[in-house]
Design a protein around this nucleic acid. Structure first.
Length: 499
RNA sequence: GGGUUGCUAGCUCAGUCGGUAGAGCAUCUGACUUUUAAUCAGGUGGUCACAGGUUCGAUUCCUGUGCAACCCA
């Protein structure tokens, strides 16, 4: 016996009553009519008529058809005011018995907050000056069987807001605004990249060999082929194959999946922009990123200065740029550059600041651990961090002057990593060696290390032009722009443990 | 993984130093033809997250479990 055969029934008095009302409506005919067509929405009515004076409105006598969910219901006997809400906002309607008829009005009085109605009527202003629709007819389109949260207190319980996002969206305007902003962020990025001749592509979500990032993948199984498949941790290696193929400027905005813990910054599936730009390097990328983020902030918020997480940001100003080691020293002046450039003394620094290390780690990894512990969350203002060690950058091109580091940067704002970009490693032989090193690390027990991807090496052997590539975490960017403390606030349906 | 806190009516929250609970909104009945969280009068509604323990008696104290939030690693 499965659970699904015995669903939990959470019925209360209010639901029972509403179900009875629906049953009555079924007996009368079509209980879920779909013959009402609105000709406008609340915000458009307000935009068009909101500034017009009452007497002038009476003269115009504009007829409209609006539809939406009843959010407020004020019954005063033979007349009522209801406030309905549609995708654009709210508008009030005045419903009179002598206008809609006795039969309809008596039925209307039994309708509930949450019901979805269609109204035909005339735009007018009340004595108090509120723009409203005087109903000439009103129709119940969908009976709502569950009571909505308190009209004033709203829905505050975080868990319910995440699990029942539909309710959250009905009653919390902030939540709606967040997801509108999210859509605008993605649109702004698309517009920005399309204007620069980047081609949007889609690459596999299911990988035979997971690659493109050091992360633990989700594993699944293909029945017909009887083989394991992995949900992608990054699209990187496929996008670079496309650059090999001559699609020299490509991007993809899509989901990645990482089999890791949940937190206010991590969801198992999250959205990344990745883009690759032939005949460019990481310096070009930083400049493009700065322009793109400035453009996005301005388009989404209508300004470049904004508040988020208690800090004030100005994306109109040039972003800071510093190296990994400079960032450490800036935020922990006790540490000297020399200390960080020697493995033994760097390990001593780590110990002093309680940074946990593994014996197998080299200088580069030790430096990065120190950076993440001491500097990362202090990078509030938009900052590019450069000169990442090759040891922690298996796909990035080595710096010509200093082979210890790569031509790579990460972008930080609000103490969080938002982007990671670098000049791509296009030396097939070097790449093959680095894959081998990753495989050794994997054999030694690092299950985040990468697999050897022979086809990717083959692609590189055909020749990847000098290319720069970058990933930007869309969720974290939206968090910053919407002042959302948790990634769950910017995901419509965040991952939750089953109820 | 560790710690802290929370879980009480449909929603937002009180409360019970251990004697099976209360407010506002919602809902129900009635009044009301320009209201604004409409108002006025009167009602209904609870396995106090779940399971054990202590106790004459547990929603309250203790232990565990689940889910969530926050902090730490």
């Amino acid at each position: 016996m499965s659970n699904q055969e015995t669903p939990v029934v959470d019925v209360n008095e209010q639901i029972t009553l509403r179900k009875q009302k629906l049953a009555d409506k079924r007996k009368q005919g079509v209980a879920f009519p779909n013959d009402f067509r609105r000709d406008t929405v609340a915000a458009d009515v307000i935009a068009e008529f909101g500034e017009i004076e009452k007497p002038e409105l009476e003269e115009i006598g504009k007829k409209v058809k609006v539809a939406g969910r009843i959010m407020l219901f004020r019954n005063m006997g033979k007349a009522s005011f209801i406030t309905i809400q549609d995708m654009s906002g709210r508008i009030q309607s005045y419903v009179r018995k002598d206008q809609v008829g006795d039969e309809v009005y008596d039925d209307f009085k039994t309708w509930d907050i949450g019901d979805i109605v269609g109204i035909e009527g005339t735009v007018f202003k009340t004595n108090k000056g509120e723009l409203s629709v005087k109903a000439s007819s009103i129709q119940l389109l969908t009976k709502s069987l569950r009571p909505l949260p308190d009209k004033w207190g709203g829905l505050a319980d975080q868990e319910t807001r995440y699990r029942q996002r539909y309710v959250d969206l009905i009653v919390n305007e902030d939540s709606r605004a967040t997801f509108v902003a999210r859509s605008k962020v993605v649109k702004a990025i698309r517009d920005f990249l399309e204007a620069r001749d980047f081609l949007e592509v889609e690459t596999p979500m299911m990988h035979v060999i997971p690659g493109g990032a050091t992360a633990r993948p989700f594993e699944t199984h293909h029945n017909a082929l009887d083989m394991p498949l992995f949900l992608r941790v990054a699209p990187e290696l496929y996008l670079k194959r496309l650059v090999v193929g001559g699609l020299e400027k490509v991007y993809e905005i899509n989901r990645n999946f990482r089999n890791e813990g949940l937190s206010t910054r991590h969801n198992p599936e999250f959205t990344m922009l990745e883009f690759y730009w032939g005949y460019a390097d990481y310096q070009d990328l930083m400049n493009l990123t700065e322009d793109m983020l400035r453009y996005t902030v301005e388009n989404v918020l209508g300004k470049t200065v904004f508040e988020s997480g208690g800090a004030t940001y100005d994306f109109g100003k040039p972003f800071e740029r510093m190296t990994v080691l400079e960032a450490i020293i800036k935020h922990q002046p006790e540490i000297s550059l020399d200390e960080l450039n020697d493995l033994d003394s760097a390990r001593a620094v780590a110990k002093k600041f309680h940074v946990k290390l593994e014996d197998s780690w080299g200088l580069g990894k030790v430096q990065i651990e120190i950076f993440e512990e001491l500097a990362e969350d202090k990078l509030i203002q938009p900052t590019f961090i450069t000169a990442y060690p090759a040891e922690v950058s298996p796909l990035a091109r080595r710096n010509d002057d200093n082979p210890f580091i790569t031509d790579r940067f990460e972008f930080f704002a609000g103490g969080r990593e938002l982007a990671n970009g670098f000049s791509e490693l296009n030396d097939a032989e070097d790449q093959a060696e680095r894959f081998k090193a990753q495989v050794e690390a994997k054999d030694a027990g690092d299950d985040e290390a990468m697999h050897y991807d022979a086809d990717y090496i083959r692609a590189l052997e055909y020749g990847l032009p000098p290319t720069a590539g970058e990933g930007i975490g869309i969720d974290r960017l939206v968090m910053l722009l919407t002042d959302s403390p948790s990634i769950r606030d910017v995901l419509l349906f965040p991952h939750m443990r089953p109820e």
